[in-house]
Amino acid sequence: MMPRRIASRTLIYLILILASAFFLLPIYLMLLTGVKPFAEVDLKTMWNLPSSLHIENFIAAWAQLAPNLKNSLILVIPESILSSLLGSLNGYLLSKWRFKNSNLIFTLILFGMFIPYQSILIPLVKFMDFIQLYGGLPGLVFVHIIYGIPITTLIFRNYYAGISTEMLEAGRIDGASLTGLYRFLILPLSAPSFAVVIIWQFTQAWNDFLFAVILTNQAYWPVTVALNNLAGSQLVQWNVLMAATLLAALPTLLVYLLLGRFFVRGLMAGSLKG
């Protein structure tokens, strides 16, 4: 038994390491390009090490991104928290309180996910202007939350679908109300799905360019607009662009690592049907 177990453990680690190599290869290339001088950025020699480390690319990239960093944080933090709470509430109501036509409502909400945002920009801007939320960050937070409703509702609903109804019934017999069950039974069980949803919403809002550039004034542009400006000018400094991309990815990465603790196994014995 033991040698077989060692062999299978080795195999698992081997596969994980190989997979990591695949996931890291493009990041490595970004890092490599990010420390090269401009003249050495070349397709043919992309794998060559730089003649000298050009950390100033990162400084130049930071100078480009820094003014917009605060805007991004103000956008993303309330957005991801509110959005996941709303999604959790919706998911709970739609999976455990199946009122009349709740499946139809769920389907209609879900369909909103597929709307191609590029095709509704004009009515969106007009409507946001009408409700006086055009131009600033709150409006952008608002729009991200709304367009996040389908996806957050979906993830939570399908996650809660796995929680046994018997447990809720038991709670009800003990006299817990709709809100009570949510607070004391559902919410404590939701940690992994909160991690999954916050990862999604945080990344979407952080990396969103389209809504940001269309819905906010220049003073409130988040980092993606600066990043896009690095990538889309007539002459592109690939080295600075790569440095900026890595810098812009850091907060998201930090969130992924912080949320890692929510991926704990077996939260509550017998919580899932089976």
């Binding site: 994980l16 997979a19 990591s20 996931f23 890291l24 290869l25 493009p26 990041i27 290339l29 970004m30 390009t33 397709l43 992309m46 990862i199 990344t203 952080w206 990396n207 360019f209 993606t224 990043l227 896009n228 990538a231 690939w238 662009l241 790569m242 991309t245 812009a248 990815a249 998201t252 990465l253 992924y256 690592l257 890692g260 991926f263």
Partner: peptide
Amino acid sequence: ENLFRGIFLLPMSISFIASGVVWSWLMS
């Protein structure tokens, strides 16, 4: 596990604008 999970999620944090460029280099 935390490290591996971070590595596998890492690409998601990279904006498409830049990852498209890097992949067009890789897939030259």
